[in-house]
Structure formats: structure tokens, C-alpha cells
Design a protein around this nucleic acid. Structure first.
Lengths: 246, 246
DNA sequence: CGCAATCATATGTCAGACGTTTAATTGTCT
DNA sequence: AGACAATTAAACGTCTGACATATGATTGCG
């Protein structure tokens, strides 16, 4: 972990890479304390600010955490799913918002992933997950709910569905896809009739999961996917018409 | 974008958050140039090193890029799928290697996601994707192939399968799951008979995709998933036996 | 023996400086 | 006038040295 070509540019990036590689390879185990900034500066033959920039890069990826004080320093961080969620959501949101990914593509991916979860969720759902799904479906039927609140509840419903699969890797993967779509979903205005139909499908999905009927769950998810696409296309068409009228 | 409580700790983290929020909200559009480090230092009333630490955090997430020279500075980066892949793989690898995720869980997630792609891949596969899948299946049948090379080819085969779905969001999501598992897969020693069976399933999958028979593809993927789990359990059992023998 | 004051260590921040890269400007020559 | 070369200016990248602050360990006193 001392690779440093005498190229005097991007030093902090090179140092960050060296340490990152050491962590990924397992040479630096979890909770291991890195040398102090002064020691690292000496080892890599750079100044302390340069070392600090490298450490901040790693901190931004949740690879290390720092503690001040006598026994402080930088420690290899045990990556928690919670931290990974946040990064995943940030990245996915940006990908969708500024990388020309169409709503249809994002939507297709999301429902493909959810349908992948459905059989597992049907097999393993607990009372807790079912209760959450029921509660969210009920909340969605409250009159006077804003579109934003409706969408937020929709996200919560689908998260419960995914979490019911009992596979944290799947939950992690889907957190990005589902939550990153929320800003796009928020642009849709749901009529009362739209909501009614969505809630009916949610209820049917919850029923199927409760009955551990994965085929039924899959069918309802497919319907929900198709209906969401239909609503989105409607919104897009109306927006295009309005743009033409100007 | 000037929020800075007078708490004189974590200044660089706070500044990074302020700028990150501005980017995510769209207040700073893609390719927009941020103020120079000196100007930012003045705006936030901190020193330049502190600003630089904040910028390095953002650079680590590929949110900004920097250019030297007269017209240089920090620019809001258009996040490319390629960059996102890298982060996704790093994060997924770490989650798997040090977060006590069992091989079974990771494997289950991976094949669930792949099976979600299969119908789309069957519908949209191009000659290119099919050629890649065939080529990798053929490479896997070469005698004298190391286990690592076999696994690498396996990854390439499955990437082609996923890419065939023509949905970059799915490709992105799966890049993490599939590639992050490679280190774990590399620990498996494949006997000639194991390989034979895997190659047969790969060929069957390629056949099904070519014939656009999504049910057949799904069935073969399910078999492959089951067989992979079986092989892994075998390895784990043997390792446990060896550990007991010591 | 217990508790409080002190100390040592390491991170967090600041100020000022120099080197390097790069584009724009200026100046000169044809 | 136009083209090419030299100068200049802006900005990042790095270094040095210093001070502030947090926190565990040590020491000293009752």
C-alpha cells in the first residue's frame, strides 16, 4: 500500500485508491485503525492536507469513519445497509434526473425487480409486513391526501412488499429503484378514480401475499405496472400538447 | 445554499451537503461551473482547505469534476452509467464481504433479478447479445481454463443476458449483484462435471433467449440457481468438515 | 482507593505561500 | 492585416506551520 508514482498530480486520488484497495482486498479489516494523518503523510511522502483530502474521499463513500481525540483516528467502517441505501438512492436519483432515462425505462426496471421479489415475499411474509402493507393501502384511501403523500405511501407500500422477501440484498437493490422514481412519480396528478384503481390493486397484492399466492401477486403487479405506464404516458401526452399550444 | 450553523465541526461535510443538495435539486444544472475555491471559501466563510475537502467528497461520488487552468474549476458532472457501475460494484462487494451476507442470500438475489430480466431479454435480444452469450458458453468449454477464468466468463455471459433486456437501469442494478459475487464464486472449485452441467444450462438459456421463449429461459435460470446453491453448499460443507478435522 | 486536574494525541481548521496548468491576451514579424 | 510566439492571469494542486478542540490516559491529591 505504498504505490505512488512520482506524478505530482492527483496525489489525493492516488492515496485514496491505495487505501480503498487495501480495504476491499481485506488487508485492512473492519474497525482497524489507520495510521494517523501525520504518519500517513510521512509514509506517502505528502503533506497532511493531501492525506486529509484522500481520507475525505473515503469518508464520502462510507469506507472509513473518523474520531477526534486521543484514541481517535480513521477507522475502517463496517458498511451498513442503511448507509448503502442512502448512496444508492442519491446515485439512482441523479442517474434518472440527469441522464436522460425515460420514465418508461425506470418504471419497467422497477416493476421487473418487484415481480422478482414477489414469489419470495409470498413465501416469507410476516404479520408485520402484511400489517404495513394494509396500513399503507388504507392510508391511500383517505380523502384529502395530497399527491405527494399518496406517492410517499405508495413507496412505503412497495418497500414493505420488497422487505417481505427477507433478502436484504434485494431490499438494497430496490431501495434505489423505487425511491429514486419518487420525484418523477410526484409529477403525476392522480385523479380520485386513478387512486381507487391503484388502491384496489394494492389490496389485491396484499391479499395474494397473505394467501401466499405468488401467481396472483405477479398478475396484479403486472397490472399495476401497465396502469402506471398508462398514467405516465397520459401525463406526458398532456404536457406535450400544452407545449405545442404555447 | 449558504446554510452553515456556527458549529465549528464537520464544516467540510456541511458544505459538501449544501452543494450536493443544490445539485440534486437541480439548482446547479449539469456542466454548471461552481465558484472558484477562493470564492466558495469566502461565501461560506471558511478556509480554502476546508472547501477543498468538501469538493473532494463530492468528487468521490462523481458529482463534480475539476479542471485546472485559466478556465478551470469545479463543474457539475453528468453522471454516466459507467461511473455509477463502479460505485455500485464497490459498494456491493463491500456489503457482501464484510456485512455478514451469506452466499445463499446473495445468490438468491442475483438469480431473482436475472429471472426478472429474462422475459425482456427474450423479447429484445439482438444478434450481438446472442453472439456474446454463445461465445462465452463456448469459452467455458475450453479445457485447461482456470476457475477464475471460468467465473469471469460466467459473469460475462450473465451480463450479456442482462444487457439484452435493453434496460440500462436493470443493467446498472445487476452489475453490482453479479460482479460483487465474483470473489465469492471464485472460491468454488468447479469439477469437469460441474462445468459440463453449467455450460449445458447456459446453452439452454441462450437457446431459449434466441427462440424468445421466456418460460424456457426462466426454467433454466431456476435450475442454474438451484445448482449454484447446491455447489456452494457443498463447498461450505466441505470447508466446515475440514475445520472440524483440525 | 476514588476523584479531579493535567497531559498527550489526533483530528478540525486556518493563513499564507509556491508550483503547475491552461486559456486568453498581447506583441511582433511577415 | 494576419499569423505565430511570448506574456499574463486565473485557477487548481500542494506544502508549511500553526492554533483550536475533543478525548482518553496519566498523574496527583484528598
Amino acid at each position: 500500500m505504498k504505490i505512488d508514482p512520482s506524478n505530482p498530480a492527483d496525489l489525493s486520488a492516488q492515496i485514496a485508491k491505495a487505501i480503498r484497495d487495501a480495504i476491499i482486498s481485506g488487508a485492512l479489516p473492519v474497525d482497524e485503525r489507520l495510521p494517523s494523518e501525520a504518519e500517513l503523510a510521512e509514509q506517502f511522502d505528502v503533506s497532511r492536507p493531501t492525506v486529509r483530502e484522500a481520507l475525505k474521499r473515503l469518508a464520502a463513500q462510507s469506507l472509513i469513519r473518523t474520531q477526534r481525540g486521543a484514541t481517535g483516528g480513521a477507522f475502517v467502517n463496517r458498511l451498513r445497509f442503511e448507509d448503502a441505501y442512502g448512496q444508492q438512492i442519491t446515485t439512482s436519483t441523479l442517474l434518472l434526473s440527469m441522464n436522460d432515462v425515460s420514465f418508461a425505462t425506470a418504471c419497467e426496471a422497477r416493476y421487473a425487480l418487484e415481480r422478482a421479489c414477489a414469489p419470495l415475499s409470498a413465501a416469507r411474509r410476516t404479520a408485520d409486513h402484511l400489517a404495513t402493507m394494509r396500513a399503507e393501502a388504507h392510508r391511500q384511501s383517505q380523502p384529502g391526501l395530497t399527491d405527494e403523500a399518496f406517492c410517499a405511501s405508495d413507496v412505503a407500500f412497495h418497500r414493505a412488499l420488497v422487505d417481505a422477501a427477507g433478502n436484504p440484498v434485494l431490499s438494497y437493490q430496490l431501495a434505489g429503484a423505487v425511491e429514486a422514481m419518487q420525484p418523477l412519480m410526484n409529477m403525476i396528478t392522480f385523479s380520485a378514480r386513478d387512486r381507487e384503481r391503484i388502491i384496489a390493486l394494492h389490496t389485491a397484492i396484499a391479499d395474494a401475499i397473505e394467501a401466499q399466492d405468488s401467481a396472483q401477486a405477479d398478475e396484479n403487479l403486472a397490472n399495476l405496472a401497465a396502469y402506471t405506464q398508462e398514467l405516465a404516458q397520459d401525463v406526458i401526452a398532456k404536457r406535450a400538447a400544452k407545449a405545442r399550444a404555447k
